[in-house]
Design a protein around this nucleic acid. Structure first.
Length: 559
DNA sequence: GCCGTTTTCGGCCCGACTGTTTTCAGTCG
């Protein structure tokens, strides 16, 4: 089989990492990576085009030089420069570096200390617990993230891919309906398998469309009612064929997690009745329809039977955003532009929470600039009707848990979002004590991106989360769900725990750009997965009630 | 190496901080 775009891209990525190790200009390294990414997302198989005698299409990021490298890979299966540069290295080094996204230098430490030369060997060593002791916890963590992340993508990327294949199959001959199911529909923060349910009278036509698609690397499973393909973009694509009478069952089976389906099976009598909708499917089992976000096998079936399913929060219930940046620190838009954008989204309030002085790279505000910003906000508020701009700060939590501003400054703010941005490697006890000290500050309103995780990139720092949550509850503070698609911090299970403890939530975007205000929908989705309803999400409150709730987080501040 | 253009060279985000790493490369927002 001709090389896939992904296989060609992998070689370009290897070359990039080898060049980096050689110490070439970092922009040249970046150019190879950019080109590799462009190739990965290019819809047609370039090896097929070249084999068919066509010239390489114009792809942004791929110029003359990388273009001829691609020709070379397609013709000979490899790049002479990769062979040459890799010659001095232990075998497998460049492949491992590229596949799991680490530098050649780091990969060299792995191949040398662990005596591995393929990603598969490395995976085995990781499972056997041998990586950490050989190369240290930091690199072990990267390896784990890299290996586990190979086939997963962020929810937003998965949704885009799913919609792409949905549109594609909708146009296939005989196709009557294509629905997105699986973890994309459940809103899971990262996705390894895209699931589609296709109602068609001509499954062979749909199969054919998939097999000749440039983004499909291989077919990994095929039965009468199913086809599973490996996508070059990473995840698997699982397509289930159904007829009208079975759409209900197919949607339920392809949407629910295995744990959810087991919960249903354990709780109610099986039924073989053909049903065309999900509602009917649940109904014949004596259950109300269960929102997809809850179908994780975390007690939702019992709750459905008891009539205690939460009334999940919805995007249109959100009244404002309480974590956003402006050009005063590292945002892309001015105070006025951010406010205009928030109003355009129908909000009643926006908190401006620029970074504080310790975070110098973000141009964090010192006391003087913060005072100026507060004045500007007062002036702006005086001219606004039916909208309130809150004076806030995303105050850095310093290494010892002290905040970046004195209490005398914090007390002048409406909102103090306290967040950690440095010293991620502190031990669990130290990190926990650091955070709790910040939580106990009387002027703190809310803790921002609590765990510090970046999806598919790094786990959160070590924390005793039970202790931290209890401290938040005891001090009547709020907890953020950060809506940035690569954070989604806190995660769904932590949100469930917060709900059980009676901790209230703010769903914020942390927008650095007006378009990022639209991240709110991702945060709402995460909140729904965490069983949150409007009464546990504080920024569903109208302005006066919100102000009262914010003040309650600062009991000694404004009595 | 690519791009865009104020066409052929300058910009591509970056500056402080961290640490066990071959004291520079990796990391944070």
């Amino acid at each position: 089989m001709a090389l896939s775009n992904n296989q060609i891209a992998a070689q370009l990525g290897q070359l990039a990492e080898l060049l980096r190790a050689e110490g070439v200009n970092r922009f040249k390294v970046k150019a190879y990576h950019t080109a590799a990414e462009a190739l990965r997302s290019y819809p047609q198989k370039v090896s097929d085009l070249l084999a068919g005698g066509q010239s390489l299409p114009k792809i942004p990021g791929i110029g003359a030089s990388i273009g001829s490298a691609i020709q070379e890979i397609v013709q000979s299966g490899t790049l002479a420069s990769v062979q040459r540069l890799g010659r001095g290295l232990p075998p497998g080094t460049a492949e491992i570096a590229e596949a799991i996204g680490i530098s050649v230098r780091e990969a060299q430490r792995l191949t040398k200390s662990l005596r591995v030369d393929t990603v598969e060997d490395l995976r085995k060593k990781l499972q056997a617990g041998e990586v950490g002791s050989a190369v240290g916890a930091t690199l072990e963590c990267k390896v784990r993230q890299g290996i586990e992340g190979i086939r997963r993508v962020l929810w937003v990327e998965a949704r885009d891919l799913a919609e792409h294949f949905q549109a594609l199959l909708t146009h296939a001959n005989g196709c009557r309906q294509v629905e997105i199911a699986g973890s994309v529909r459940r809103g899971k923060d990262t996705v390894g398998t895209l699931a589609l349910v296709v109602q068609t009278g001509n499954a062979p036509a749909a199969r054919k469309v998939l097999k000749k698609h440039g983004g499909v690397e291989e077919v990994s499973e095929e039965t009468e009612s199913l086809i599973v393909c490996k996508l070059a973009a990473g995840p698997l694509l699982r397509v289930r064929f159904a007829d009208a009478a079975n759409m209900g069952a197919a949607m339920v089976e392809e949407t629910g997690s295995p744990a959810h389906l087991l919960e249903v099976k354990g709780a109610v009598k099986a039924s073989r009745k053909a049903v065309s909708t999900e509602e009917t499917w649940y109904e014949v089992r004596g259950l109300p329809w269960i929102p997809p976000e809850l179908r994780e096998g975390r007690g939702e079936v019992e709750a459905a039977q008891n009539g205690t399913l939460p009334d999940l929060v919805q995007l249109d219930q959100i009244r404002g955003d309480l974590h956003a940046h402006t050009t005063a620190s590292d945002g892309a838009h001015s105070l006025e532009e951010m406010v205009r954008a928030a109003r355009a989204r129908g909000y009643s309030y926006l908190a401006v929470t620029d970074h504080s002085k310790s975070l110098q790279i973000t141009n964090g505000l010192d006391e003087k600039r913060l005072r100026q910003q507060m004045k500007a906000i007062d002036k702006l508020n005086a001219s606004l009707k039916g909208f309130r701009v809150f004076k806030g700060s995303e105050v850095d939590i310093l290494a010892d848990g002290e905040l970046d501003f004195e209490d005398s400054v914090l007390k002048q703010l409406d909102i103090v979002m306290a967040s950690i941005h440095s010293r991620f490697a502190l031990g669990k006890a130290e990190q926990t004590a650091r955070l709790i000290r910040a939580i106990e500050n009387p002027y703190v309103t809310c803790i921002g991106h609590l765990t510090g995780r970046k999806l598919l990139k790094r786990p959160g720092y070590e924390l005793d989360l039970d202790k931290v949550l209890r401290a938040i509850k005891a001090n009547n503070k709020l907890l953020e769900i950060n809506s940035s698609p690569e954070r989604l911090d806190i995660d769904d299970s932590l949100a469930m725990k917060a709900r059980e403890l009676g901790i209230q939530i703010l769903i914020n975007t942390d927008a650095h750009h007006i378009q990022e205000l639209d991240f709110m929908k991702f945060g709402v989705q995460q909140a729904r997965r965490g069983w949150q309803s409007a009464d546990t999400v504080v920024n569903t409150l109208e302005l006066p009630a919100l102000v009262r709730r914010l003040r309650a987080t600062q009991p000694r501040a404004r009595s």
